[in-house]
Design a protein around this nucleic acid. Structure first.
Lengths: 250, 250
DNA sequence: CGTAGGCTTGAAAAGCGTCAATAGGAGTGG
DNA sequence: CCACTCCTATTGACGCTTTTCAAGCCTACG
């Protein structure tokens, strides 16, 4: 018996169909999009500040971050991307990229020309709707991050990020139970939370000391008790706009 | 001679046509959208967290802010809206609002049913494109705010906000030279920048002492020298995606 | 087996928050 | 028109969270 090879763009279709119902023709049209696959090393760039946007990149594997650099040289990570995310849908209508997208780990991306995206959006209303929805969820996450960085202390901020990670990984099918491998260094966690790596270290160790999480290896997070972690992280999953079953970790 | 009464939705059309070219038919279709006008008092709500989104509100006059409240009770303002902004385009595809929109000043809004927005977007590709672009610019501003709050110190953060305000007011035709009336209290500025009102006060006074700005009345900001303020605020206007002529204050 | 990147920890400093008190102005009711 | 209240702005004193600077350690990898 032969299992048919899954289509490379399958993660994108799965994502778009997550909360908008796409019919067979929609799915077929999506899978028929012309694309090129590229493997990018850890630290490699998908988009650089100032680039002219000509294509959208779909994450197939690995993790990437979108970041901005301020005048002092400090960096702020504004979003984290994983399998299924369409990384540059955001910028497809704007002239030049105002940020950088960089791989956190080695991974593969599928690049789709911008005009192909526009064409399918014009032809297939439900696909347009699904993509539109993705960007709105993105915006919702940006707003939550603003609240997180602007108004929560270090412990809450970090616990919140760990919760978000857990759910998004679960939805992307990349982690199951309450444990996962963090794809970020403590310095990157610092850039994502608006803290310093030293303070991230102390805060992680504090969460560990108080048994919210456990780590065998510095990057492997075990969530001891989802409810407790969500509480200390002031985490409510609504902003991720997930399906009901996906809003908690068992 | 009679000057024809300008149409109430004119500010919205002007905004949408700002960087996407809309033809006469597009404009007509936009102006033909059914709407209801509502005057909202200072402190009144346009959207409340948990509301089910059924309509989009176009700001006709006055100012509003979008905010989220965290567990500790602290509030984070995530965006500021003025004439021409379509406040709820963001949430039109998502189930329930994950934030609140509140008037900073008395003002008028035009409410348009969500399905009307969808209809015109489906019928008129360039209108869809213009609205899509608006939400992308919104996202770009969220990202800049994340960098601002996460990685800049209080003085830079506040100066940056003052610069953004100056340009947006100018583009909306609400302020001309380098001076404007701030529609926000210092406490609201604090909620927008992730600081406290006490520290905002000290920071404003510092900017004043060093002659970046002048104030006769606590709310009236005079920008002494745009280049200096932009420098201290680490402000580069690209993220607002304005037309070339609109990127500086005379 | 040496080097580099990431993690960890200590000590001290700085920026920003908290608490508290005062003052001015706008609106309100008598 | 005055007394009263509420809201906003302002300032001082103090304290705490987070940063900065610095050093040591571990592990992966060439």
């Amino acid at each position: 018996m032969i299992t048919p090879e899954p289509h490379i763009l399958e993660p994108m279709v799965r994502r778009l169909a997550y909360r908008v119902s796409l019919d067979a023709a929609d799915r077929e049209a999506l899978l028929a999009l012309p694309f090129t696959v590229r493997t990018v090393e850890r630290g490699g760039y998908i988009v650089r500040e100032g680039d002219i946007a000509t294509r959208t990149s779909v994450m197939l594997s690995g993790f990437s971050v979108r970041s901005k650099t301020v005048g002092s040289g400090a960096r702020q990570i504004v979003s984290i991307h994983m399998r299924g995310d369409m990384v540059d849908l955001q910028n497809s209508l704007l002239d030049t990229a105002d940020h950088t997208v960089e791989m956190l780990t080695r991974g593969r991306i599928a690049e789709i020309a911008r005009n192909e995206i526009w064409r399918i959006a014009a032809d297939r209303p439900m696909v347009a709707r699904a993509m539109w929805r993705e960007t709105l969820v993105d915006g919702s996450i940006f707003r939550e991050w603003l609240a997180n960085i602007g108004r929560r202390d270090a412990r809450t901020r970090l616990a919140h990020l760990f919760c978000e990670f857990a759910l998004r990984l679960k939805v992307a099918g990349l982690a199951d139970a309450g444990q996962y491998e963090l794809p970020m260094t403590q310095e990157q966690l610092a850039d994502a939370t608006g803290l310093t790596s030293v303070h991230i270290n102390r805060t992680i160790r504090g969460l560990e000391a108080d048994r919210f999480i456990e780590r065998d290896d510095p990057r492997r997070i075990h969530i001891m008790d989802w409810d407790r972690l969500a509480e200390v992280g002031d985490f409510q999953s609504e902003y991720l706009h997930l399906r009901d079953g996906d809003t908690v970790i068992v």
